[in-house]
Nucleic acid binder design. Sequence first.
DNA 1: GCTCCATGGTTCGATATGGAACCAAGATAG
DNA 2: CTATCTTGGTTCCATATCGAACCATGGAGC
Lengths: 151, 151
Amino acid sequence: MPDSVTSDYFRLLNEIGIIGQLSRTLLEARLPPGFVTAQFSVLNHLVRVGDGRTPLAIARAFQVPKNSMTHSLTVLERAGLIEMRKNPQDGRSKLVFITDAGRTFRADAIDAMAPDIARIAAAFPRDVVARLLPDLERLRKVLDADRDAPE
Amino acid sequence: MPDSVTSDYFRLLNEIGIIGQLSRTLLEARLPPGFVTAQFSVLNHLVRVGDGRTPLAIARAFQVPKNSMTHSLTVLERAGLIEMRKNPQDGRSKLVFITDAGRTFRADAIDAMAPDIARIAAAFPRDVVARLLPDLERLRKVLDADRDAPE
DNA sequence: GCTCCATGGTTCGATATGGAACCAAGATAG
DNA sequence: CTATCTTGGTTCCATATCGAACCATGGAGC
């Protein structure tokens, strides 16, 4: 494979990393003090794909170590944004449920970002967003599948 | 602005965040143990845009607090990958230079990722990459410009 | 010159993240 | 049924990240 191809993929991931960093900063500026993106993302995940999942399943979805997820969930539970229940099917594991407070927290954060989104939308047309979304979803799925069958 | 528009932008940033996380994990698996993406990114930045910049300028380029950059640079200097010199123009600041060892470190890391890139390339065609790059660059520039003139 | 403010970096303390070791509960083999 | 292996989570420790306070130099106003 020629170098130029490698470097195109490399640049792609690089750009995505920078944009991720910039938007993370944007989001954290709108979250209540003391909360970070990782915690919001868990709530968002629970709403989007449904709750009642095990901590390990969530950790895998984010590709983070399970101990990191333990920590995030502890913070969220202390804040009353999620509930951890025993898994009746398996004595080892727990199930994670989002609370009403958690749903409100997520909705508020999204609302709080509206002005930021509006500024971005003014400079970055919606049709470009529409064009990007399917390709990026596909890339995410490729990376997701890749880690399951590595090397 | 209708909700659906906001949610498209929101989903875009969300996808980008996830891809960023997955590719960060990929990169870190290839770095020598103990090194982290942030440190590699600084070296990459110095090669791409040129060295001899101040720590603050680099911190701004990554949109990270200056104390975080102080830490990253300390690690890189201890490892002999960069050099910090006094700025002859300004007694307050320093200038950051990448060493030969630093250039080698960066090149090795990129080489080490080649097999990962190859697997991704097999499932994600190059022309899609080519299509994504200009749009993403534009989005990054929009976000970059936005933080300079916020609110 | 002197005062006041702005800028560039570091330090401190508190939280986040991740690797490794650990423990408990399920699964499997005999 | 026991021995062993695997799986789900937590704990421990080391490093990373970041807000706030701090210090030193530079620059502006007078």
